[in-house]
Design a protein around this nucleic acid. Sequence first.
DNA 1: TGGGCATATGACCATGGAAGTACATACGCG
DNA 2: CGCGTATGTACTTCCATGGTCATATGCCCA
Lengths: 110, 110
Amino acid sequence: MESSFAIIAEPNRRAILGLLASSERSVGEIEHRLRMPQTSVSKHLRVLREAGFVESRVEAQRRVYRIRPEPLREVDAWLAPFRRFWTAHVDALERHLDRMGQAPRKGRNG
Amino acid sequence: MESSFAIIAEPNRRAILGLLASSERSVGEIEHRLRMPQTSVSKHLRVLREAGFVESRVEAQRRVYRIRPEPLREVDAWLAPFRRFWTAHVDALERHLDRMGQAPRKGRNG
DNA sequence: TGGGCATATGACCATGGAAGTACATACGCG
DNA sequence: CGCGTATGTACTTCCATGGTCATATGCCCA
């Protein structure tokens, strides 16, 4: 488990991140919202923290977690080369796929 | 292993997808480029195929694989709520994080 | 039809990670 | 100062999965 991709492969972790996307939350809040055992939440938060996905703030006895964007940004960056497949015009995509059938290299109307 | 996220958690699979991003390739081509045993390539391709990431075309004895965008698009969609963290202006982000500090917790003002 | 290459599949092993349990620690309150 | 709540961590168990080896399948060509 090194890559950011492996981290977000876990559904519960994605759920936690999804929750934190809208606002920061305490562990108990996450536990309650996701109906997940607290130890499980803590464990996942630890993984997320160590991977840089979240950071925590201490507020009395509570730990309040919030998103740290970097690793997700990394994932986003990896997706970049693939976006051409679904962005732009649909017919351009079709033409692209069609071209892939013949040429080992991309290249569109010159 | 159901989710698209789990599929791309595997580094070799990401490598394969990365290769296919520029153009379609035969199994042997992937094997050679990534210096990965053929059986391994085939297995990963199978996983990718069953998950809808790629599709294959038969060309004589060769199987030529190409990208199918849907699952990656799904990943891209999941990232959407997080993009606000790194897109737009930095000060907008700061304002956002600042807002998060108010926390939409119930019972409190908010 | 048979040989040979390209690819797929199945078995086996080892690894890694997820979940549960139990315990340790920290903090606030009275 | 002691209790209760909130959180983190170590330990164990179990299962999924990747790598590899051996082999099967399918297609071309002579």
